[in-house]
Simulated scan of single mutants.
Amino acid sequence: MDEDFLAAFLMARALGRRSRSQAWLFGFSYTKVYRSLEMSRLSAEAERLVSSRLGWGGWFGWDNCSRLRETVVDAFIDRHLDPETFGRLTDDGALAISLIDEAARSGRGRRYLAEVRLALKDAEEDSFRARADYIAGKIK
């Protein structure tokens, strides 16, 4: 089993309602699945596994990367998954900003981001404290 398929499988599990470790599964698979979708390197089976669980999104409903970002953000907010895991979902700064921006589009998302900010503001890593500062600017 290759890494991309494993990540797609774990993402599909996270997007379901049965797993008790949804936040962890998202954390393990988000960046890998996003980059694999972006580079069109998922097998057809792995892509179907993930895309069948994604919401249809807004204007860019045809774009699986946008659908993945929106669906994952909605899952964290709607299921009130661990805010710190959301803040650390990816090591990629650009992907983290896109997740934060997506969450900041709604009042519920901004309230959730306030919790994420609290979880990250005293982090040892500069990058996570920088995310907390970015979030502070988004939730004003």
Rank of each mutant, 00 (worst) to 15 (best):
Y112G: 03
E70A: 05
G16C: 08
A104H: 00
R111L: 13
D78H: 12
R67A: 06
E84M: 05
G109S: 06
V50M: 04
S51W: 13
G58F: 07
A104M: 01
K140V: 11
V50Q: 04
A103R: 05
A96R: 10
A104D: 01
R131M: 06
L99Q: 06
M11K: 04
A75V: 09
L81H: 07
R67I: 03
V73W: 03
F28R: 14
T85E: 10
R18G: 13
D82F: 09
R18V: 10
L54F: 03
R20I: 08
D122G: 09
L54H: 02
F26L: 11
G87C: 03
I139M: 01
R79T: 06
S98L: 09
S21A: 14
A8W: 03
I139R: 00
L113Y: 00
Y30R: 01
R53N: 10
S51K: 15
D4V: 11
L37V: 00
I100R: 00
F26Q: 04
A23I: 09
I77G: 09
K32N: 09
P83S: 06
D92T: 12
K32G: 02
G107E: 14
S52N: 14
A94G: 11
D74V: 02
R69Y: 00
S127L: 12
R53P: 02
S29W: 08
Y112I: 02
F76M: 05
Q22S: 13
Q22K: 15
R129P: 01
L25R: 09
R108F: 04
M39N: 15
A119I: 08
E84Q: 09
D82P: 09
K138C: 07
S40P: 06
R17F: 13
K121D: 12
D78K: 15
C65T: 13
F26D: 07
A104F: 00
G137W: 05
R69P: 00
A75L: 04
G57Q: 03
V116I: 05
W24L: 13
Y34T: 01
S52A: 13
S106N: 03
S29N: 09
R48L: 11
A75W: 07
S51L: 11
Y34K: 08
L49M: 14
R79E: 12
D92K: 08
S52D: 14
T31G: 06
E125F: 12
R110V: 08
L37F: 01
R131L: 07
T90W: 05
